[in-house]
């Protein structure tokens, strides 16, 4: 494709990214650096602040479609702290899956792919995209949550009992390295599309059109990185290497969730997340 076509594709994906993801990297950066003119996030650092912060967790959610409303886990007021935190994180994750799905459908050519292949690409790609999306929301001390209204400290997450305390630590380590690449929101949009369009996911029927789509997005990403980050010629290669780390990270996460399902009898896994993680790794 001509570079004008590649730039048009970049613009299209960037617009879709801003349309579907409420907390962008630039917004998160402003919140984390205290440049939001008095609207600081509510800090959750212990059980007392968690109880007080529940209002913020629940007060802004994307519109939920009727058929999705019926699958939301019920509120359980007397549940244990760890299960309560885990349920809230799951709920937000299920919303994020819907956002990533809408973004995915906007990738030119995606909806023309075989329907089974679309399901496989989304199933394998969505947690990798969500993990990457989490990176800009994190710094060494904690992570933004609930559209940036909450900052949950890393120490609080580490203080939860095993195995809950292990759920976020690897993601903080990934985020610290990923954030060094200093991508902007438009780079992230293209990178998400590259992740989704991975032609080596197990069970794909018609790989060629997926690889062709990915090749075009890769060209657009390479062109954009060279244009926006001319002082970092290795950025494209460094970013592609992150895809290997992401797969490892997601495989670990899924193993941990399967372990939780066996050990925590009271734990209720969100049906959408359950569907994604079933037979994943």
């Amino acid at each position: 494709p001509e570079s004008a076509d590649l730039r048009a594709l970049s613009r299209q994906l960037c617009l879709s990214y801003h349309r579907h993801f409420p907390l962008t990297k630039s917004k998160a950066k402003a919140i984390l650096s205290g440049k939001t003119h008095g609207n600081s996030p509510f800090v959750i650092h212990d059980m007392k602040s968690l109880t007080a912060g529940q209002y913020f967790i629940n007060c802004r959610q994307l519109p939920v479609l009727e058929h999705q409303r019926s699958i939301l886990p019920p509120e359980e007021p007397a549940e244990e702290l760890e299960l309560s935190v885990f349920r809230r994180i799951q709920f937000r994750s299920a919303e994020a899956v819907q956002e990533v799905t809408e973004f995915t459908k906007s990738i030119p050519g995606f909806t023309e792919l075989d329907m089974n292949d679309q399901v496989i690409l989304l199933k394998y790609g969505v947690i990798e995209v969500m993990t990457t999306m989490l990176a800009p929301l994190m710094n060494k001390d904690g992570t933004l949550f609930a559209y940036g209204q909450i900052f949950m400290t890393r120490e609080f997450l580490k203080s939860l009992r095993k195995p809950f305390c292990e759920m976020m630590e690897l993601k903080f380590e990934f985020a610290a390295k990923f954030n060094l690449l200093e991508l902007d929101d438009s780079d992230m949009a293209l990178f998400f599309a590259v992740i989704i369009l991975s032609g080596d996911r197990p069970g794909l029927v018609n790989v060629k059109p997926i690889e062709d789509l990915q090749e075009t997005v890769l060209q657009a990403l390479e062109l954009q990185l060279k244009t926006i980050h001319p002082d970092c010629p290795q950025l494209f290669a460094k970013l592609l290497q992150k895809m290997t780390d992401l797969r490892q990270l997601v495989a670990n996460h899924v193993r941990l969730i399967h372990l939780l399902k066996k050990q925590e009898l009271q734990m209720c896994l969100h049906p959408l997340l359950q569907e994604i993680m079933r037979d994943l790794y």
């Binding site: 349309r19 579907h20 519109p63 479609l65 058929h67 999705q68 699958i71 899956v97 819907q98 799905t101 809408e102 995915t104 459908k105 906007s106 909806t111 329907m115 089974n116 679309q118 399901v119 496989i120 989304l122 199933k123 069970g203 049906p271 959408l272 569907e275 994604i276 079933r278």
Partner: peptide
């Protein structure tokens, strides 16, 4: 596969709220 992934399948088939 779509049978075992009913919710994902439905999300993929739903028209995007942003696009009406």
């Amino acid at each position: 596969l779509t049978e075992r992934h009913k919710i994902l399948h439905r999300l993929l088939q739903d028209s995007s709220p942003a696009e009406g």
